[in-house]
């Protein structure tokens, strides 16, 4: 019991600590590829600290939804983060929910963000909310199918169990194609859900292109800090998911301190590598028009479906 509690606290701390770092890595990679020096990878921490210190301004048009939303989003993402293994494959909260719970916890945050976008009564927020609604509705089927395709090989839909079994090589050994397709699908989903190019651009403040930034436009001070941190958390959750489900090597499968230490190092390395990849992608591709995003997410859905198909065909 105490053991689980310590692990939970550790995992929460790791997630909270690593998320600004991952954002920093992406920004740094982008800057370097654009031949800029770029800010230090630790800059996001300083940004957060600064935002927390600022006095928030709240619109008089808003209701309690507006001030409650940052806390709800932050909470739902942290809870989702506890369902995904990070440095150890046996997360204590594994029993609390499987992938469906994970997806719907993320949806809880999305729901309140959409509401908050509408609350201030400015057209920007409404536009962001409206776009978020369509992007979210297209990503989730692909996400559920892709993780399900992987879940089948391990006989479990609990993320931690999947990772633990894969790390110990206990799953059904099949050809790599279903995994490959599911990975591609999940990666596209991750880009869309975390608001990255080519779906959304976190660095823009141009009304034609904003999605996530438009929804949080009216926020300031500690509320904005919480939302920025949450955006980082979402990134961390998705990167942990991808890194640990598809490449669980090095993750701590036992409870010894040595294994945990190695697991932590490997975890940071893996997620940082994925963050670098995202940075490269952001430099290589242009942002898609909103109505072309459907093409991309359509690809993700079909890939996940094919992964599933291949799994069944290969096993029969």
């Amino acid at each position: 019991m105490l053991h689980s509690l310590i692990l939970m606290v550790a995992q929460t701390t790791v997630l909270l600590a690593i998320s600004p770092f991952l954002v920093g890595v992406i920004r740094k990679v982008k800057a370097r590829l654009q031949l800029r020096r770029g800010a230090s990878v630790l800059q996001p921490y300083a940004d957060l600290a600064k935002l927390f210190q600022k006095q928030p301004v709240i619109s008089t048009a808003t209701s309690w939804i507006f001030t409650a939303t940052p806390y709800i989003v932050f909470t739902s993402l942290l809870t989702a983060g506890l369902l995904v293994p990070t440095f150890t494959s046996q997360t204590p909260m594994n029993f609390a929910g499987n992938i469906i719970a994970l997806v719907y916890l993320l949806a809880l945050g999305t729901f309140f963000l959409i509401l908050a976008g509408l609350d201030a009564g400015s057209a920007f927020g409404g536009m962001g909310s409206s776009r978020e609604a369509i992007v979210a509705s297209l990503t989730e089927p692909a996400m559920i199918l892709s993780i399900f395709a992987i879940a089948l090989t391990n006989g479990s839909t609990n993320v931690s169990t999947i990772v633990h079994k894969t790390a110990l090589l206990e799953g059904i050994v099949t050809d790599p194609s279903p995994h490959l397709m599911a990975l591609a699908a999940l990666f596209i989903v991750a880009l869309a859900e975390t608001g990255r190019v080519p779906v959304d651009n976190p660095a823009t403040h141009l009304e034609l292109t904003m999605i996530h930034e438009a929804m949080v436009l009216e926020y300031s001070g500690r509320y904005l800090a919480l939302l920025e941190w949450s955006a980082g958390l979402k990134l961390a959750v998705f990167l942990s998911l991808i890194a640990n489900v598809f490449a669980p090597w090095g993750i701590a499968t036992t409870m010894t301190p040595a294994a945990m230490a190695i697991g932590l190092l490997v975890y940071v390395a893996k997620t940082a590598a994925l963050a670098v990849l995202i940075g490269v992608i952001e430099c290589m591709f242009a942002k898609l028009r909103l109505f072309r995003v459907t093409d991309l997410l359509g690809v993700a859905f079909i890939l996940a479906l094919l992964g599933l198909l291949f799994f069944y065909i290969l096993r029969s």
């Binding site: 600290a49 210190q53 006095q55 928030p56 709240i58 909470t75 001070g221 500690r222």
Partner: peptide, 26 residues
């Protein structure tokens, strides 16, 4: 959810102090 919401509130207080929000039109 309840416990982590407390954490969020705690973080906001610990890192930002008790700053009073200013209300102004959008």
């Amino acid at each position: 959810l309840a416990a982590l919401a407390m954490l969020g509130l705690g973080l906001a207080v610990a890192l930002g102090g008790r700053l009073k929000a200013r209300h102004y039109k959008t």
